[in-house]
Design a protein around this nucleic acid. Structure first.
Lengths: 255, 255
DNA sequence: TTTCGGGAAATGTTATAACAAGTCAAGACG
DNA sequence: CGTCTTGACTTGTTATAACATTTCCCGAAA
């Protein structure tokens, strides 16, 4: 093959910048350039790790560390002895990436929407909310989630007061449409715990979702923790299983 | 503190062994010894990484690589600047580790059991089985799963013919009791894809599980792939949500 | 006695080298 | 013409060094 996709000793702009680690700068650089069609040949084959190493002026392992998360996200697929290739079908809605709701819905070809059912500070808690957030009072947001105007899920989210107040200052439309922690809010998300179960619709939720009472529901509870171990969001959601399935794909790491 | 838990230059037996990598040998050695109460002090504090490095005669990073999966499993908790500690409440049934059924049940304090409902080669397939296993005929095993004699799940597993034949040669009791791929069967598991949903019991399954028809079920489909990409097992299971919840816990890796 | 700050000790992060193993095509050989 | 072998090229794995950051005790100063 020997394609020489790019003039060999072109120096890239954003590397050799301050603070942030090399492999992260390089990762974002690769992401950007590949989106513009650079660094890959016509077959979607990425420059080899060694070439990229020379190109960015770092060792192959650093390139490897830069690319690995992109492979993990599903952007590239690696093939030993052959090379690294851009994947044709990107999305792969997988639980690991904290599953953005609207993103998922859009991927499936629907238009995402939402209707606010409740919102604001509250002292009355559902079971376990107080303990899990470790707060006396919480800010809550209960929404009906829509796909092309069809209700498909009920989401009830709880936040610590300060995060809640921040949320109130933001435009309501954004809050309504998107998962709150989806786009960065300044908090660093360190960990998330999800618990998945099954349940039935009661009279109220059946009416909201437009199904018969007793229809099955996929229930998810997600607790998002910040870097300091502080709880940032407690999300309890019930999904109609016809529209929503979780897909978990995992590769065994370091045996 | 300065406890010097073990004579410093005692050499450990199973390290410096053939084939398997150092960090794996060391990991298993640590697992064994800690279970016997060695390498940790009275407070559950593990020897520091540097000490372990000297003890096993490798670099600190290798020790780190050995311990990391144990931390990931929930056996230890690391605390920067303080040390590494044995966790009090071990289990953490989490999806990532391919969830062994009986292990999970035992952790919850029940005794795991099973009753075989169907077994053997078949040409009649449920939808999708043929495509996913990429075989014409498959070997199937349908079991009712018990916890202390209470039915809690129905598992229907499909295998490629050759794997099925291997299974028939094994003692039936093992097949009945344990998840087949749980203990190593010689196949290297490279990847697993799980899809999670919700459903309802029909008349047959309700009778088997001892609940009313229309009770909610947590449904899981798991496709296990070998290192060469070949499908090794297709598992379809329905669990009673009272007994079975999935817990997903994930830490954001390499930002 | 209390407070403050320095430093030792511990884990966290980043970058690297050297070797292992798979892929594929060119060329030797029947 | 087909088959086998060799070797260059590529990703996979293992082990390492060096530095960053956090914790916490202990001693000096108020």
């Amino acid at each position: 093959m020997k394609s020489s996709l790019i003039a060999a000793n072109a120096r890239h702009q954003s590397v050799a910048e301050g603070g942030t680690p090399l492999h992260i700068q390089i990762r974002e650089s690769i992401r950007r350039q590949v989106k513009k069609g650079e660094l890959i040949d016509a077959d979607g084959r990425l420059m080899t790790e060694a070439e990229l190493g020379r190109y960015f002026g770092v060792s192959r392992i650093t390139i490897r560390n830069a690319i690995s998360p992109l492979v993990h996200e599903g952007m590239f697929a690696r093939s030993r002895g052959r090379g690294t290739f851009l994947r044709s079908n990107q999305p792969e809605n997988w639980v690991g990436r904290l599953m953005g709701f609207s993103e998922t819905i859009r991927d499936a070809g629907y238009e995402a929407g939402a209707k606010v059912l409740q919102q604001g500070m509250t002292n009355r808690h559902d079971v376990g909310v107080k303990e899990k957030l470790q707060e006396r009072a919480v800010w809550q947001l209960k929404r009906l989630r829509l796909a092309d105007d069809t209700p498909i899920a009920i989401e009830h989210a709880f936040y610590p007061p300060d995060v809640g107040l921040e949320l109130e200052k933001r435009e309501l439309i954004k809050i309504i449409m998107y998962s709150v922690l989806e786009d960065d809010l300044g908090h660093e998300i360190a960990e998330a715990k999800q618990t998945i179960g099954a349940g039935l619709t009661d009279a109220t939720s059946a009416k909201l979702l437009g199904v018969k009472p007793g229809a099955p529901l996929l229930t998810i509870e997600r607790l998002t923790l910040g870097k300091d171990g502080r709880a940032l969001e407690l999300l309890r959601a019930s999904y109609l299983p016809e529209f929503f399935r979780l897909s978990i794909s995992l590769t065994r790491r370091a045996t």
